[in-house]
Design a protein around this nucleic acid. Structure first.
Length: 413
RNA sequence: GCGGGUAUCGCCAAGUGGUUAAGGCCCCGGAUUGUGGUUCCGGUAUACGUGGGUUCGAGUCCCACUACCCGCCCCA
């Protein structure tokens, strides 16, 4: 038997109503905030992610679905299934010269992403993200717009109590100063750090702060090191930007906590980074991650353009959300006269009523039994009704039945 | 890549070496040939993850593999 691939799953049946509901909420909330939907391809040139996501990241180093088609002799470019969607949207933004439109340019997306990882709770190899990207605005108004959109979306899903964790990484210069100080203070302790941290020390010292190894944590607790870690290397301009963002969020009554240790794993972030977490998720606790990436458009060959965005993990949202029970169909036509039943069903559907009937030509009682399971109303179309030209409408939750004289009257239910 | 756990019909689930592998839900039919959701009766099904081994006999014991779940790393 051929089974779904490891880390992938079929979404159907009971789950589908909730999935559709999440999608509808995303669409409504994002569009109300002026974001336009963008659908970019599910595969892109590998090069895009190597440069866009960053080749020091785990995503690029060990998690990408990369392959080539058409054979090497044809000189096809190497292709990769998108592990995230910011790079793709930025590519599209550049390719279509969108920077020539008046800023801001605002996009939202909802779709599958692919990462080759060991599956566990809240993690799959094919998973879905809903996100937004906002281009062209340097001001903290843009960061605010993006964060408030994330919060509004969560609220629309009934997840109002999650708090936003905020941090600022500063501009490339602040980031570098910070990195160098961390490297400097940790240099004497390098021997005692875990292997992961040794690697991070070389590749991305900021990420050392994420380490959960007890031994490393102890080292970071030392006063002189803690001081360096917690010290601000943020320049005046970056600090102003961050202060402004916090001021706006305060004004809007958005709860947030500052988390100095929040650095995020993708290389392209600068200044604002944020995450929204839920304890209820277990160890994969982040439902939403995002931030500012002012350098990315230029790095991928466009004109220098400030940008900020976020991505939400839809599977993780799904586990948090109250599940939707699928709504019942409006009508079920019960009849032993298949031809007349079909005609009525067709007319109702043309008038935008969800309607079903028994395709198995079963006896009356069975049809009604089926109707009571899936429909709000049964329309009984028997010999009497057909002959005398009326409908018997039965409310299947109350059992009440009444005579309806015209088709138009049915449409009121 | 590294640890831990689990695997019996579509779903839940008994079973701890001895006939034809319980039961519940779902589904189908009947009681009730034009009035459902309750009840009663009956029925369908390629179920012991895969491959080996021990044994007179294996769902049950042993080995290997696979898949899934959980944790680490990392991320949404």
């Amino acid at each position: 038997m051929i089974k779904a691939q490891r880390g992938t799953k079929d979404i159907f049946g009971e789950e589908i109503a909730t999935w559709q509901w999440i999608f509808e909420n995303a669409k409504t909330v994002f569009q109300n905030a002026g974001f336009e939907e963008i659908k970019t391809p599910i595969f892109e040139a590998t090069e895009l992610f190597n440069r866009g996501v960053g080749d020091s990241t785990d995503i690029v180093n060990k998690e990408m679905y990369t392959f080539s088609v058409g054979g090497i002799e044809k000189n096809e470019t190497s292709i990769t299934l998108r592990p995230e969607n910011t790079a793709g949207v930025v590519r599209s933004y550049i390719e279509h010269n969108m920077s020539r439109q008046s800023p801001p340019q605002k996009f939202w997306y909802f779709g599958p992403m692919f990462r080759y990882e060991r599956p566990q709770a809240g993690r799959q190899r094919q998973f879905h993200q809903a996100g937004v990207e906002l281009f062209g605005i340097k001001d903290a108004t843009a960061d605010t717009e993006v964060i408030i959109t994330a919060v509004n979306f969560l609220k629309s899903l009934g997840l109002a109590d999650l708090t936003v964790e905020l941090n600022t990484l500063g501009c490339p210069k602040c980031k570098n100063d910070y990195k160098n100080s961390i490297k400097e203070i940790l240099a004497p302790h390098l021997e005692n750090l875990c292997d992961d941290c040794k690697m991070r020390y070389e590749k991305n010292p900021l990420r050392i702060l994420d380490c959960k190894n007890e031994n490393c944590k102890k080292i970071f607790e030392k006063d002189e090191i803690k001081e360096v870690i917690l010290k601000d290397y943020i320049c005046d301009e970056c600090r102003e930007h961050f202060d402004e963002l916090k001021k706006y969020l305060d004004e809007l009554n958005i709860k947030y906590t500052i988390n100095k240790m929040l650095v995020r794993g993708l290389d392209y972030y600068n200044r604002t980074v944020f995450e929204i977490k839920s304890e209820a998720l277990g160890s994969q606790s982040a439902v939403c991650g995002g931030g500012r990436y002012d350098g990315l458009v230029e790095m991928l060959g466009g004109t220098s353009t400030p940008a900020v965005g976020f991505a939400m993990g839809v599977e993780r949202l799904y586990t948090l959300v109250d599940k939707i029970t699928p709504s019942k169909t409006d009508f079920f036509v019960v009849s032993n006269n298949t031809k007349e039943a079909m005609k009525l069903v067709q007319k109702l559907r043309e008038n935008n009523k969800s309607t079903e009937f028994d395709l198995q030509k079963r006896k009356f009682a069975k049809q009604l039994e089926k109707a009571s399971k899936i429909a709000k109303y049964a329309i009984i179309l028997g010999e009497d009704e057909i002959e005398k030209n009326f409908y018997s409408l039965k409310n299947l939750s109350t059992g009440e039945q009444k005579k309806i004289d015209s088709f138009d009257e049915l449409l009121d239910y």
